[in-house]
Structure formats: structure tokens, C-alpha cells
Write a protein that binds this DNA or RNA. Structure first.
Lengths: 399, 399
DNA sequence: ATGATTAACTCAATCATGTTGAGTTATCAA
DNA sequence: TTGATAACTCAACATGATTGAGTTAATCAT
């Protein structure tokens, strides 16, 4: 009966009244959330009109959600004649979403509330990111988080988990950047059993893209892409409000694509990535290990860094041309483990191709914008996956 | 109450019992169809297990579908002990799907039955593809088709329509390859009013991709891409069984992407397209206006054509590298207005990059395959959109 | 052969959920 | 003050899935 489902059971393909209610509840929640991101609220009649449901159905759902502490009434609003409509809003702390990022040397965790606000962040060092070590760190993290005031297992909607790919048919398999010992693990059910929560697995770029949708610069958008600076360069693609996985979860490997540059064809991430920047700096005898180091160089107008920026801008334009032509996104956000000042500099004054299909007059958004940056982006995105799921009705709305 | 909906009303976002039944009916149909493509059939209990529905629910739906002439019983099957299960199959002529392709000089039409078999094809010449001219041709075509024995308006599920892009926010707008007079028309409702049928609009590449799913080489696949030779070169992307549109329906413009070639960076369709082939032949003083001309040259081992094939193969490899890294498809199909022998030659002995994420040992399908070719591919795809819709449950099945 | 076992299927009662139509209430406007 | 309007509630109803108790037709073990 839970609309923001907490049970770990896999949903079946068939629909019944329970699923119907779940779907409709999610629609109500997403409407309220959408209103709130615009500084607005909504009443029952308005939601009924938007959903095509009867007022009575919406009323029942609202009563249920209110009783479960997910939403609350927040005053009335006169819209001219007629009885004023009771407005509702989402309770920030009605429920929470857990997000994990597994890295070779650490486990990052973020907890978001229903407003998409970060409640806490944790980092657990790992000797090796084996399944056992990760499991222990996850369990400990969950215990610590549950000890916080106001938190209870029942209030956690689920866990999102970000792992480095590439993924095999089931779990991760035999390739380069892989973690040790995960080959034969079906990660979703492994995590669900471990945490006793529904789990969602994604790659870092898609998760980062979700974070922008939940609490970043792409709120309300259904189609967009995120260029994500992680280990290399990834592309998160949101189409129709959902992340694009590909057949085996390995979509978005834009860094591996060879692009044409004045200096010849090169893989994109050989120019446009944190590692490429560090290499470029190193060839100028400059070391910059942390984001802070890079930010400092940038603020000091380091010539080698500015040189790299110019190279990177050219590569970025090629990448954007590629993405716009192939995916027709509303916008492209740049995010990930780079100083935000640097991302701003990349976005500013890009020599974009004016002949793109994306260069249409009626567009409202810039073609490229800066998203959130910093080392926790992926863990934040992992939690955002869960919120997105809680707010996304499962019956596809025909557009 | 119709599961394979015929009413033109736009679906609302909310779910109710009618939508539930619709969804479950589509699940039953898709299960039967999937079985049939494998030369198999299915019984009620089996469908119930697959869907998670109760046997009784499936029984009710089967009775309804049978009564409406969409499916029929086809014998029993012993599966060991127990009463043998009554098997069901889809009636080929229980319903039909209409597909139109609008071109600057002609309207193409294809009618498919529920098995995805082509029932008839028509071509109407147009002086100019204005909305009025297209409307008249569509109406006449529909009248002609309805006169066929066994056909009735009620048996037509809907109409798919393929038009050249690029598309604006509503309909087609201010760009190069555009048709005259369509700027301010909301095409879906225009077509629905015109034909009194539900309508689906797509670009040619996506429609061609759907055709492969319904009656071609990608049956049963959820994630794949189609390189489509039309006016230029387009990419149809199917993700999770649905076509990828992008924010404004302009996704898949792969022909515009600049790729790195030995001769320097060029737009892909400057090498890999029908026009590029014709240009290459022309520079060798050879004229080849029709597909038949090209096929004849190919069978005559024309040196200029073979030269182009080698160039095209290199460009194709770059394109495939791009697609595999960005979208991680199960396979990539080549299709469209090229002789099938030529597509076969392109696919054969491609020097594919062995280091791609797509080059994994467990893959069952070739990385690149030939799809259907010929001038009617897009119209066929348009009708396939309708069948796909009829067979696709609207609640997203969590995978 | 005979009975036990198994699985498909049917029937009827029940339950969850959305819809409908007839009120009720609160506000605005004349 | 009164009528119009819109939000909201209540109760009856409709749809469709589920459940549990049969029934039927096959295989298996003896």
C-alpha cells in the first residue's frame, strides 16, 4: 500500500489496484515537488486537473500521504471565487534517501531528505573495495545514520549505489577499471539483502545527472545530458526523465570517443579530464593533486592551466556538438570532481557551432551550463536516484 | 475498455482500472507475440507466472481479447503432469496498423497486420508536400485501404507518421530540409483529427529502428541502434524498448557529427550516405540515380563504388565506435534506402575496434548487422510504431 | 488398471481503488 | 443580502485484480 515503496520485493510486470495507487501517489508527490521547486504549492483540485484523476481520488491519496507524514497542509489559497483551496507541501523530513559511491579506496555516503537537501555525508576509508569490505562499511554507515535523531529504518526510502563500470551482464566483469571480487555478484539484490532496502545501481555520470534534476540546475527538465568529470570523462543522459543505461549499463563512455582536434584525432578524455589537466600541468613541472590545488592555480592565473583551458574548450565544443546532434538535449550540464570556478571558465564564451539543430531561437536555457561540482557529486547523485524514483510515476505518461 | 486502444483521446497521467486493464492486456499480447517470434505459443498459467498476475486475471483478459478477435486458441500442450494448457496465438488479421511517410514529392503508405506482415503498400505523388495536399492524399489512401476485404475502420489500431525533421517545439520549424507550410501545425492532433485514429509521429531513423523490432533483425531486443540511410544519415535509438526523441524530437542526427578520418575531419554523412556515394560516383563520371543503378554497379564490381565502400567502411567504424561508447547497444543495424547487397558489403569484415566496451566475450549478437533495406523502410517503420505501442505495456517494467 | 499427484482452469466471493452524483462550505461579486 | 463559483465531502457504484474452493485432464507409481 506504500506509494513511496519501501518493500524490497521486485515489482512484477502486471498492474493491479495497489500498483495503480502507487502510481497515482507518485504523481501527487511529483506535482507537489514540482510546485515547490517553483516556490509554489498546490491544492487537491489542481492536482486532480493535472492528473486527470477525480478530486475524490486525489483527496484519498492526499489523506494517505498526510497520515504517513510525507506531506502536510500549509494554508489556503484564494483563486478568485469559490472556497479557497487547501495547499499541501512535502515534509522535508518525512523520508530520506541514502546514496553510496564505491571507489577503489573509499566508500562515500550521502543522506538526502525529501527536499533533496543533504542531511549528512560520510567517508569510510577502504583498504581494498572488495564486496566484504564494502558491505561492512555500508552496514556501519547505515547504523551510524540510523542513530541520528529523527531517523528510523522505516523513513529511508532506499539506497542508490554508484560504482565504476564497465558492467557485465550481471554485475561488473573482466575489464580495466574494475574493482576486485565483484565479477559474480548481482549487485542490486546483494545490496538489497545487505541494507534491507530497495537498491538502485547506476554509473557515476548518470547519478550525477540525477543529482542535477533533484537539487541542481536541471530541475523540471525531461531531456538533458551531464558531462561528468570523474576518473575520466563520462556522460550522463536523462531521456524522458530516466537515465539511459544501454544494454549492459555501460552507456555514456564519451571519454573513449576519438574526436578531431587541430592536433589530430584523440580520445576525448585525453584532453578533457582531470587526469589530462594534471598531465598537462606535470609537463610544465607543476603538481596539482587535489581540487584545491587546481582551484588555487586557476585563481593565480597559472599560464599552463590557462593553456589547458583553451585546449579543453576546443575539445568540449566537439563533445557538445556530438551530444547535441545525437541526443537533442534541452541543455548540457558540466559537473563532477573539478573546481567549480574551472567549470565556470570552461562554460564561459564557448565557441559553439551556431549551425547546430540545438541553436534554435525559441530555446530558453543556455546550451551549456555548470552543474554542481565537488568530490561528493556521485554519492549525492546516488541518493538522488532514490528520490527520483519516489517522485516518478511508473506508468509512462504519453507526451 | 479496449486494451489495444482505438480512442483518440489523450491519455491522462493518472491511472485507474481501465488503464490497468489496458496495461495488462498489452502485457498478454506482448507475451504471445514474443512467443510467436520464437515459433512458440503460450498458455494462461505461463502468462500469469510471467506477469505476476493471477491466473484468473489472465483468464479474463484472454477471454476479452479472444472475443475481440485479436487472439485465438491454437491447441493444447502437455508440459508433463497436470491438465494440458490451452495455447493462444495472435490472429494475424485481428487488427492492422497504418504507416505513412511524408516526403517532399510523395506520400508512402504501408499497412501491417498484427504479425507485422505487410498487407499493402501505396505511393501517392505530391506536387508539394503542403499540409492540405498531404491531408488529401492520406484521406484517399485510407479510403482505398478500407475498401479492401476484411478491413474496417475499427480494425485499424492507429497511424504512424514519419516526417523529415528538424522538429520545432510544436511541429516542424525554421530549418533547412523542411516541408512547406507545417510550421504552426501540431502534427499529432492534426493527424488524429484527419484520420480519426490515434497517431504517432517519429523521425525516419527511429521509425526504421522500430520496424526492425517488429519484423526485422532486432526482435526481442530492448537496447539497440539503427543507422538509417535516408536523405542523409540518421541514427534511430531504441532504449528500453522505446525510441529516443530528445527534447524536441531531433535526436539521432549522427550525419552532422564531424568525425576524424585519414583525409581530415568531416561530417559523417559527407562520406557515409547515399548522396556521398552518388557524389563519389559522379566524380568518376558515373551516374546512379536509383537503388537499382547502385545495385547493378555493385554486382558489376564497379571500381569507383568499391573505392567508396572502403572509405565508407572506415567512416562506419568511427560511427560505430561512437555509438557503442555512448549508447552501449546490444547491436547496431544498418538499414534504409540502400541496396541490401551494399549494406551486406559494408557490414562484412568491418575493422572494428577490439578495445570497445562492446567487445565483450559473452555477447550473442554480432556488433553490427544488416537490417531491412529499400525505399519503403520508413513507411514500414511508421506502421511498426503503432504495433510497438499496441504491444508495449505502459507501466515501466523494472528490469 | 488403479489411485495418487500434479497443473490448468473455473466459479463465486471479496477487496482495493477510482468514479459519479448529490450535497455542503467558503469565498467573491453584484 | 443573494447568487455564482469552486473546493471539498459523503455515499453508492463500477471495474478489475485476488483468493480459495472446487473441477478436469494429464502423468507417475504401484
Amino acid at each position: 500500500m506504500t506509494s513511496v515503496s519501501r518493500n524490497t520485493k521486485r515489482q512484477s510486470a502486471g498492474a493491479n489496484s495497489e500498483r495503480t495507487r502507487q502510481h497515482n501517489s507518485k504523481f501527487v508527490l511529483s506535482t507537489l515537488r514540482h510546485a515547490q521547486t517553483q516556490g509554489d504549492t498546490a491544492g487537491r483540485a489542481e492536482i486532480a486537473r493535472l492528473s486527470g484523476l477525480s478530486i475524490q481520488a486525489v483527496s484519498n491519496i492526499i489523506a494517505d500521504l498526510e497520515q504517513r507524514g510525507l506531506i502536510r497542509a500549509c494554508g489556503k489559497r484564494n483563486q478568485g471565487r469559490g472556497q479557497p483551496a487547501v495547499q499541501y507541501e512535502i515534509c522535508a523530513n518525512g523520508a530520506y534517501a541514502l546514496g553510496f559511491e564505491v571507489r577503489p579506496d573509499a566508500l562515500f555516503c550521502t543522506l538526502l531528505n525529501l527536499h533533496g537537501e543533504t542531511m549528512c555525508q560520510k567517508r569510510s576509508a577502504l583498504m581494498r573495495a572488495t564486496p566484504d569490505a564494502v558491505a561492512q562499511a555500508m552496514r556501519e554507515t547505515k547504523t551510524t545514520i540510523l542513530a541520528e535523531p529523527g531517523l528510523a529504518h522505516e523513513k529511508i526510502l532506499g539506497a542508490g549505489i554508484v560504482m565504476p563500470g564497465p558492467f557485465g551482464t550481471t554485475g561488473i566483469s573482466g575489464h580495466d577499471s574494475e574493482l576486485p571480487g565483484w565479477q559474480d555478484i548481482e549487485i542490486t539484490s546483494w545490496a538489497e539483502d545487505l541494507l534491507n532496502l530497495p537498491a538502485l545501481i547506476e554509473n557515476d555520470a548518470n547519478a550525477a545527472a540525477m543529482a542535477e534534476r533533484i537539487s541542481g540546475v536541471t530541475q523540471g527538465l525531461q531531456h538533458y545530458a551531464c558531462l561528468y568529470f570523474g576518473a575520466g570523462l563520462g556522460l550522463g543522459v536523462i531521456s524522458n526523465g530516466q537515465a539511459l543505461h544501454g544494454a549492459r549499463g555501460n552507456a555514456g563512455e564519451i571519454g573513449h570517443i576519438r574526436i578531431a582536434l587541430p592536433s589530430g584525432a584523440q580520445p576525448l578524455e585525453a584532453v578533457l579530464s582531470r587526469l589530462a589537466l594534471q598531465d598537462h600541468l606535470k609537463s610544465n613541472s607543476i603538481t596539482a593533486d587535489t581540487s584545491e590545488d587546481i582551484a588555487a592555480l586557476f585563481h593565480a592565473d597559472c599560464p599552463a592551466l590557462l593553456e589547458w583551458l583553451n585546449l579543453a574548450r576546443i575539445a568540449l565544443c566537439e563533445a557538445i556538438n556530438l551530444i547535441e546532434n545525437l541526443l537533442d538535449p534541452s541543455t548540457i550540464a558540466l559537473c563532477g570532481a573539478m573546481p567549480s570556478a574551472l567549470l565556470d571558465a570552461l562554460v564561459k564564451d564557448l565557441p559553439l557551432n551556431p549551425h547546430s539543430v540545438a541553436a534554435r531561437p525559441e530555446r530558453m536555457l543556455p546550451r551549456v551550463i555548470r552543474g554542481s561540482s565537488g568530490p561528493m557529486t556521485a554519492a549525492l547523485g546516488a541518493a538522488a536516484l532514490v528520490l527520483n524514483d519516489a517522485f516518478t510515476p511508473q506508468i509512462t505518461t504519453s507526451t
